[in-house]
Structures are given as C-alpha cells and as structure tokens.
C-alpha cells in the first residue's frame, strides 16, 4: 500500500502564500513527478507530506490515514544528500532501523541488503566525505529504503550531479524502484527528468503554488529519452511550464 492524497492543501509562511488549494494523488506503487518553476512550493509539498510542517488548510492522507506530525511511513531523499557525516555508509543506512530499536543483526542484514541493492558493496565503511555525489545519493536512497517506507519522497535528488551521472542515477533509481516497488513522489525542475521517470507529471504554477496540469506518461520502460512519443509529451509539458515561468519571472521585473 502507499496511496497519497492531497485535498485542498494550503500553506502560508508569514504573508507568503506558498501553496493554495493543492489537489492530487499518488496511487499505490505509482511514480509521480512534481515539476514547476523555482519557488512554486514543490519542496513545501514534500515537507508537508513528510509531516515536517503542517498545512494551514486541507488534508493530506497516506492510505486513508491523515498525516499528523512527522510521517514515519515516508522515506525522504534530500537534494544535498543530508547524510550523517560522522557515520559510515553502513551506519547511515542503519540509522532508521537503529532508532526503531532493531537488534544489531537485524540492522546489519537490512544494511547489507540495501548496500547490495544500490550497488555500494565494498564501500560499507567509507565516510560520506570519501564518496562522489552519485555514490552519496545512492546512500541517501538506501537509507530511505532501509526504513521500509510506503512512499518515497525525493527532493531534486539528482540536482547537484553532473549530466552524465544524473542520467545514470535516473536509470539506477528506476532499477531499484522496480525491484522494491513503492510509491514515489519526485520533485524536479527538469522536464526531461520528469518525463523519463514519471508515470504522471504534475506541473505546478507559482505564486501561489497550485497544481496547473497533470500529464500521464503512458510509455513502457525502459524509455527512450529521445523517442517521438517522449518528445510529444515533453513538448506539451514544456508549453504548460513555460507560461508559468513567464508569469513567475514577470513578477520579478
């Protein structure tokens, strides 16, 4: 299970209306990409779903349960990795199981499983400062997965990577996701990334943050990045987005 519903969600920070009446769902096992210009409240949506902040209005529920306080059934993957620098790869992945009070052997079998899954065997005892960006994010994904979440929240996880590593990691993410199928809500500002990864792409508009369009990406995986169907979808997503970007940038002028 892992069905996320946001209905009429609004959030204000002081006088800034970050989100206004946001509605969308992530079906069980679905990969949804959240796309929008910077400052449109994409990250705020993730933080609300994770329960790190509370909405002013509206209801967010996971499998019919209203989210109230930190949502421990979500795994969060951060843009700048947010790994514990004093913990090795293995210890980072074991953080969740450890705070849940699992025994050492249980923790070790979990971390071993996910280290193998994300392809970090041999790096168990490395510290984050000894890893490349792509490897750090592998740890980030494994750490989130190790907590056995129903829903994976990813906040521009590959935003800090170079283009090639980014493509590689997108493929890796899909491989991992196909092995351990859970719902994913993936925030990005790259149309290519959204269309390559998502079952659906939710386009948001800025000021206030709202859902503008939702696109279905009914392409079989593995997808061809430059295939004609992908290009058609990319084109319509871009059109939807570009009016938004114009509007958003207009306000700064």
């Amino acid at each position: 299970m892992g069905r996320l519903v946001l209905s009429s969600v609004s959030k204000k920070f002081n006088n800034f209306q970050a989100l206004l009446d946001v509605n969308f769902e992530v079906e069980d096992g679905e990969f949804v990409c959240l796309l929008g210009p910077s400052g449109c409240g994409k990250t705020t949506v993730l933080r609300l779903v994770a329960g790190l902040v509370a909405p002013d209005d509206g209801i967010i529920s996971l499998d019919g349960k209203k989210i109230n306080g930190v949502n421990k059934e979500c795994g969060f993957v951060f843009q700048e990795y947010a790994l514990f620098p004093w913990r090795t790869v293995k210890e980072n992945i074991e953080f969740g199981p450890q705070v849940k009070g699992m025994t050492k052997t249980e923790c070790e079998s979990i971390s071993k499983h996910y280290i193998d899954l994300v392809g970090l065997s041999g790096f168990e005892n490395h510290y984050p400062n000894e890893l490349s960006g792509g490897m750090k994010q592998r740890v980030g994904i494994a750490r989130a997965y190790a907590n056995n979440p129903k829903l994976l929240l990813m906040d521009e996880p590959f935003g800090a990577l170079d283009a090639q590593t980014r493509n590689l990691m997108q493929g890796e993410l899909l491989r991992i996701w196909e092995t351990e199928h859970i719902s994913v809500l993936f925030v990005t500002h790259s149309v290519d990334e959204a269309v390559y990864l998502g079952d659906r792409v939710v386009v948001m508009s800025a000021r206030p943050g709202k859902v503008k369009d939702i696109f279905d990406v009914k392409l079989t995986r593995p997808r061809i990045r430059t295939g004609p169907e992908a290009n058609i979808i990319r084109d319509s997503v871009l059109k939807s987005l570009s009016t938004q970007i114009k509007l958003a940038s207009h306000e700064y002028i």
Binding site: R47, A50, L52, V70, N71, K72, C74, G75, F76, F78, E80, A82, L83, F84, P85, W86, F95, G96, Q98, V99, K100, R143, A144, N147, L153
Partner: peptide, 28 residues
C-alpha cells in the same frame, strides 16, 4: 545542519534520539 535533523525525524528518531545521535556528534 537542520537538514540532518529533518533526515533523522523522517527516519523515525525521537527528540532525545536526535540530540544523542545527531546534535551531539555534529557538535563534537
């Protein structure tokens, strides 16, 4: 780093766990 505290929260850490496992090591 507040992101580390957020990460610990989403991984299920309680307030005292956060102090013990995040704040203290980070302040070391």
């Amino acid at each position: 780093d507040t992101r580390l505290i957020d990460a610990a929260k989403t991984l299920g850490a309680s307030e005292s766990m956060i102090v013990k496992k995040v704040v203290i090591p980070s302040a070391l």
